[in-house]
Amino acid sequence: MRIKVKIKRCDPTGRGGCEPYLQAYDVDVKEGMTILETLMWIKENLDGTLSFRRSCRSAICGSCALVVNGTPKLACKTQILREYEGAREVVLSPLSNFRVIKDLVVDLSPLWDKIGRIEPWLQPGSEPPEGGWIITKDEVERIDRESRCILCGICNSGCNSQEVDPEFIGPSAAAKVYRFVGDVREDGKRRRLERVSGPHGIWDCSRCVMCNEYCPKRVEPMTSIEKLRVEAIREGLVDNAGARHVEALVDSVNRVGRLDEAVYTFRSLGFLRSIGMIPLGIRLELHGKMPLPHIFPAIEGIEEVRELIRAVEEEE
């Protein structure tokens, strides 16, 4: 079947700088053909100037990540006909949230810097015991997902927090942090958690679920971020808006079974930042939207909710 494959290109040596443009190529595609095979065919037969990264062709190296019809994917793991059938077209673009070097090649150095900064190596407190560490199956499974990351940058491309804050730690580096925080041999757990509890850290994830949705290795970085948050609160790293936000919500549910928005806002923000919200509060009040504290009673069956919270806490 002959289809048009549209590729978002840019050439930094060209006159317009790296001004992107869309170029269409006519390609005969066969059932089972991947996007990477298509790109290689175009480069070999139609246009030798087309640039893209690739290496292993089997979803191991993480080199060929790009955006297919708006969704970040591995070119080698994606069949072109399936994409064409879904959208009636195929548009290939470079990964989002990264600077484009040429065509489909982006500058991944911000990703390497973030990974480097989290010190991606095990830091045990002592030498291994004689005969080596004995690790149970459960202990390996705890960090199994995070160990699968191939650093392709797909999660960073989809990440909505990274889009508005390039300094945000990002899903891949956060997942890597949990890979060590969750390792029973690790000694630097608290230090690692302190580092990611600050600005641009784990509390800046907006839970958009893009990373969990698109990770080709099912690392589920957002779930790793949730696990890091649990560990950070357990370590007592609660002097930040993110942790206060969680504690305020759990308290509210324990008290009335629901979200007491006004008290919750106040407790999450603290006194000074709450004052800054007063103008918005007045406008909400004028529109009859202001959530007033304590005017709604606890839900029916609140004692059941408290009983369950107690039961889980006792177990912990």
Partner: peptide, 21 residues
């Protein structure tokens, strides 16, 4: 009689709390 779903934040405290509530 239903309680708040936690908006995902129960998971930041304790995964079992999220599943239980």
């Amino acid at each position: 009689r239903a309680n708040c779903c936690g908006a995902g934040l129960f998971n930041d405290k304790n995964r079992e709390l999220n599943l239980t509530l």
